[in-house]
Design a protein around this nucleic acid. Structure first.
Length: 270
DNA sequence: CATTGTCCCTGGAAGC
DNA sequence: TGCTTCCAGGGACAAT
């Protein structure tokens, strides 16, 4: 499941492979991927353009094109961007070909991923919240964003308009590291808890990027390689396993239709 | 506005 | 073995 560390890894590894390359052909295998944009319009908007930059914002990949337009891809649950994949991909949805014979394939088993082609990227990413690895993300800023909120902290961490890029796995890991129960109301966190949570979010995400993401489900890097961040998960997807701190079995509850893993002893509600 | 619930989508797992 | 049902979850959207 691509969250911030996975998308950041894809950006980092794709960047040197595609920068400056001109798109010579586009195949739209699955028209659902481009949403309401007709595939002919999508193709003609891309063909002939060069990729001049690649950035990440939250979980979005943003490709700036020479003509001024912007290609934006969200991988959602099972999407991958593969560079020069071997053989045919059963789940290929969009294929970009470059003038020198290379290709980039957007594959997506569950077909939830979305591709945009726009002149104004803010229409797609404009409502996203703060970047947690940006220096502007401070404990004071986090406190401000949680103040007065009554929803469970877990739900607030998943709200992309508050913090951009955290997903289910890393939200659970950050809450465990900060020793905060996922159901605790956001506005009721103490300043000590907010400081711990702030630090944990940064450390968990940074470490996962060092590990090139977590290969849970279908996540792959552009060269087809996997990430190793999941090996360091302490609670996420570890129902019934022993808490590495106290040995208590990890529990799972559902918050906003998302499975939340936590240690009932280390993360007390009160 | 804040919060909560539903839906999309598919393949792997679980149950019968 | 083979069929059916459930589940995973990011984000758009509707309802409250």
């Amino acid at each position: 499941m691509p969250e911030l560390p996975e998308v950041e890894t894809i950006k980092n590894e794709l960047l040197p492979l595609i920068i400056g390359r001109r798109i010579t052909d586009v195949t739209v295998v699955d028209t659902k991927a481009t949403q309401k944009l007709p595939s002919q319009e999508f193709r003609s908007g891309l063909i002939g353009q060069s990729i001049i930059s690649l950035e990440r914002r939250g979980k979005y990949l943003i490709f700036h094109l020479s003509g001024g337009r912007v290609l934006i891809i969200h991988l959602r649950m099972t999407g991958s961007l593969l560079f020069d994949p071997e053989g045919k991909d059963k789940y290929a949805r969009i294929i970009l070909r470059f003038e020198d014979g290379h290709s980039m394939v957007f594959t997506d088993r569950r077909r939830l991923g979305v591709v945009y082609l726009t002149e104004d990227e803010n229409q797609v990413v404009g409502r996203l919240g703060i970047e947690p690895l940006n220096s502007s993300f401070t404990a004071a800023e986090l406190a401000k964003r949680l103040k007065g909120r009554t929803a469970p902290i877990k739900a607030l961490l998943l709200d992309q308009s508050i913090i951009a890029g955290l997903g289910n796995m890393y939200a659970d890991e950050a809450l465990f590291a900060a020793r905060i129960h996922p159901l605790k109301r956001g506005g009721e966190l103490s300043s000590a808890e907010i400081k711990r949570l702030h630090r944990s979010i940064i450390e968990i995400l940074s470490r996962a990027i060092e590990n090139k993401g977590a290969s849970v489900d279908t996540y792959k890097r552009p060269d087809g390689g996997l990430g190793t961040a999941h090996n360091e998960f302490k609670v996420a997807h570890r129902l019934g396993e022993k808490c590495p701190v106290c040995g208590t079995p990890i529990e799972r509850i559902v918050i906003r239709n998302r499975g939340s893993y936590f240690c009932p002893k280390c993360q007390r509600l009160r």
